[in-house]
Write a protein that binds this DNA or RNA. Structure first.
Lengths: 126, 126
DNA sequence: CCTTATAGATTACATCTGTAATACATTTAA
DNA sequence: TTAAATGTATTACAGATGTAATCTATAAGG
């Protein structure tokens, strides 16, 4: 399993949004949120390539980077391991924590209801 | 915010279950799951004390360790930061991932329904 | 053509983490 | 009462991570 560090993740997220991008485009895209030196971003790009998380095509002497792993796959793998580690694998207690901190809004609840409806549908038709 | 590493977390989890415990008790409790040398566990206990995550009382020349932070607080803080980082703060997509991987069971769904019911109750009575 | 700017590659360096080993103090067994 | 065992404290050391600076090759401007 490819391990992506926190700083590296921010770079991946830029490239999950738009792809492929040059190093400078990534630097620019990160400019808003992060106060990182250009060199720092290039290091992160390099490490991600080494790890096999990014690939690139050459465009002149610059590179155009693109993700080699899908965001959804990454999200799901991370979710599983997080919930496993912190909540012994059960997702409901995590949601309960959000509820108790008033971090649930109407949209979330709407989506959860839909998920549950789908799940129940799935249950009874097989 | 106190940062607890992965290995350290396993030690905390032992002490969240039973408390206070001597170093040897912790070593024994971890024996089942982890293949850690006794010295390793003691190092982790030490680091957790340094970080302010554990306290201890002396019992002769041994120490009896106990958590200084509550498991629930830790879980909620970690949940928030995880969901923030991976899902831009929205919890529903995380649950959707579980659903799509067939990682939801009837218990989870039951609990989620209850949470939703409580949430809706809460909404309309204020 | 030659100089300079710029892209990626390599190197740097402190801190954190995993995983112990060693040192030191003290209790206990012989 | 002295040696061994045992508890904590200190030290070790490699790899990951955050955060760059420097090196090297080449494209572009004068």
């Amino acid at each position: 399993m490819i391990e992506i560090s926190n700083a590296e993740l921010s770079v991946m997220q830029v490239l999950w949004q738009r792809q492929p991008l040059s190093a400078n485009d990534v630097v620019a895209a990160l400019g808003n949120d992060k106060d990182w030196h250009e060199k720092t971003v290039k290091t992160l790009l390099n490490r991600l390539v080494s790890k096999g998380a990014l690939g690139f095509d050459k465009d002149g002497r610059a590179y155009l980077y693109y993700p080699l792993i899908a965001e959804q796959d990454y999200q799901q793998q991370q979710s599983r391991s997080f919930v496993e580690r912190i909540f012994a694998g059960r997702v409901a207690p995590l949601v309960a924590g959000f509820a108790s901190q008033n971090k649930l809004n109407a949209d979330d609840v709407q989506q959860l209801k839909q998920l549950i409806a789908d799940w129940e549908q799935e249950q009874h038709h097989d």
